[in-house]
């Protein structure tokens, strides 16, 4: 999962201070792993160098936390590309998928699209596994079943998350 792309997503709704970015990140995705300031500023400077963000202005006073960052057009394009791309289906994807869904909702994109894209990718893999199961021996079948159940769990969790968040945004944003 990419912290850079996540920060880009957070910036899309408007320019922010680095300090705000860290707070917003921790609130939504940090849970047990809050970002270090150092991590934030090194990532931002990488994005600056790549032209994906730009400095919007420096407020009076000293210290790096006085800088405001804004997303550039190139940054938006990068973010679009990432959100629209299916993650390679594999177990334990939830961090990335979750981040994508939240960002989509935050930036006014359709979480359903992300879901559909991901579902297609998951199902394609599941179809392959299902087909392999019908030709394979017992060991093959059991292994395939295990993978299938996990993939299904992922998809279901994702659907549930999308539904939950959609209900939530409806409450929050009128």
């Amino acid at each position: 999962m990419s912290i850079g792309l996540t920060l880009l997503g957070l910036l899309e709704s408007g320019p922010r201070h680095g300090y705000d970015l860290k707070r917003a990140y921790d609130e939504r995705f940090g849970h047990d792993h809050p970002l270090h300031y150092g991590q934030v500023y090194s990532t931002l400077s990488r994005l600056l160098k790549g032209g994906l963000v730009q400095l919007e202005g420096v407020e009076p006073g000293a210290g790096p936390e006085r800088k405001r960052y804004a997303i550039t057009d190139a940054g938006v394009t990068d973010l679009d590309g990432w959100l629209g791309r299916a993650e390679k289906p594999e177990p334990y994807l939830q961090n990335t998928l979750y981040t994508k869904v939240v960002l989509a909702l935050l930036t006014g994109r359709s979480a359903d699209d992300i879901l559909d894209t991901q579902r297609a990718a998951h199902l394609a893999l599941m179809r392959t596994l299902t087909r392999r199961k019908s030709t394979g021996d017992l060991a093959d079948q059991l292994i395939c079943d295990h993978a299938l159940f996990h993939l299904e769990a992922d998809l279901r969790w994702l659907e549930l998350t999308a539904a939950r968040l959609a209900a939530l945004t409806e409450e929050v944003l009128p």
Binding site: D116, A120, L123, M126, R127, T130, L148, R156
Partner: peptide, 23 residues
């Protein structure tokens, strides 16, 4: 159920009365 849908050759998603073609 995705596991059941995985038996299909193709899936169509219906949302709010409109179908979304995943292909």
């Amino acid at each position: 159920e995705p596991r059941v849908a995985a038996y299909a050759d193709r899936e169509v998603v219906v949302r709010d009365g409109r179908s979304v073609d995943l292909e």
